[in-house]
Nucleic acid binder design. Structure first.
Lengths: 122, 122
DNA sequence: TAAGTATATGCGCAACTTCGCATATACTAA
DNA sequence: TTAGTATATGCGAAGTTGCGCATATACTTA
C-alpha cells in the first residue's frame, strides 16, 4: 500500500512508509524471527522448532515481513529459505538492542527504588 | 505492562519490550512528532500548528510515547515542553532514515520498471 | 501414481488502535 | 474571582491485528 506520487506531498507518504516498517517490527515473534536471521538464512520450518510456533502463525508473520520487503526468500526443493534483505536492517536492530539494554537497565533501577520504598512503607 | 522478573525467561519479555517501542514508533504522526524533536524540545502546542493535528489527537499520541518513555516532559507555567529522552533514539531514527531512503529508491526503480513494462504491453 | 513433508492462505473471533467529540484539569492574567 | 489559554482524559464508532483452525498448494520420494 506504498502509494507514492499519487497521494500527498512526499514527506507524508514517506512517513507512512516508515510507519509500516516499524509496524512490521512491532511484534515479539517477528523480532525473534529477525534475531534468528542475524547470521544468515534459515528455512521457514526451522523457526517453528526454534521458536515453538504454530506453523500457520509463523507463516503469517513471515508474510508480513515479506510484504514490507524486510525479508526475501529463496526456494530450494520444497523448502523456502528466508534472509534479511538489507544488512542495514541488522545494524538498526543492533542499535535498537543497545537502546533497549540501556532502557531496561534504567527501568530496573527505578523498579528497585520503588520496591525499596514499598518495603519501607507497605 | 513491562513485566520483568515474574514472567518467562528474560529473552521473551525483552522482545515484548522491544516490540512495544516499535509499536510506539509505528504511526506516521508519531514519527512526525519525533522528527520535529530532532533539534531539541518543543511545547505540546507547537505540534498542533506544525503538523496540523487535532489537539486531543496530538495529546493521545504524546501519551503513547510518554508511556514508553521515548519522550520526557518539563512543565513551565501552563506549557509542557517535550523532548526525546535518549539521544540514542535519534541515532536510531537517523539510521532508519538511511534505510528508508535506500528502500524507497529501490521501490521507485522497481515501479519504473513495472511502468515501462506496462507501457510496452498494456 | 499415492503418500508424505514443507509452506501458504482463508476465515472468524477477540483484542487493540485511531480518531473526533466532549469534557476536565492546570496555569495565567485581569 | 472570572475569563482565557494550554494540555490531558473518557467515550464510542470504525477500522486493524493476532491467532487458531481448517484447508490449499508445491515439491519429493517410493
Amino acid at each position: 500500500m506504498r502509494n507514492f506520487a499519487y497521494t500527498k506531498p512526499m514527506p507524508d507518504s514517506l512517513r507512512q512508509f516508515k510507519a509500516e516498517i516499524f509496524q512490521a517490527l512491532a511484534h515479539p515473534t517477528r523480532i525473534a524471527i529477525l534475531e534468528q536471521l542475524k547470521d544468515g538464512e534459515l528455512t521457514a520450518g526451522s523457526f517453528v522448532e526454534r521458536l515453538g510456533l504454530e506453523q500457520a502463525n509463523l507463516s503469517q508473520h513471515l508474510a508480513v515481513m515479506r510484504a514490507r520487503q524486510i525479508v526475501v526468500t529463496r526456494k530450494v526443493g520444497n523448502q523456502v529459505f528466508y534472509s534479511v534483505r538489507d544488512p542495514l536492517m541488522l545494524e538498526i536492530l543492533a542499535l535498537m538492542r543497545r537502546y533497549f539494554h540501556k532502557q531496561v537497565a534504567d527501568s530496573m533501577a527505578t523498579m528497585e527504588q520503588l520496591e525499596k520504598a514499598e518495603r519501607r512503607r507497605p
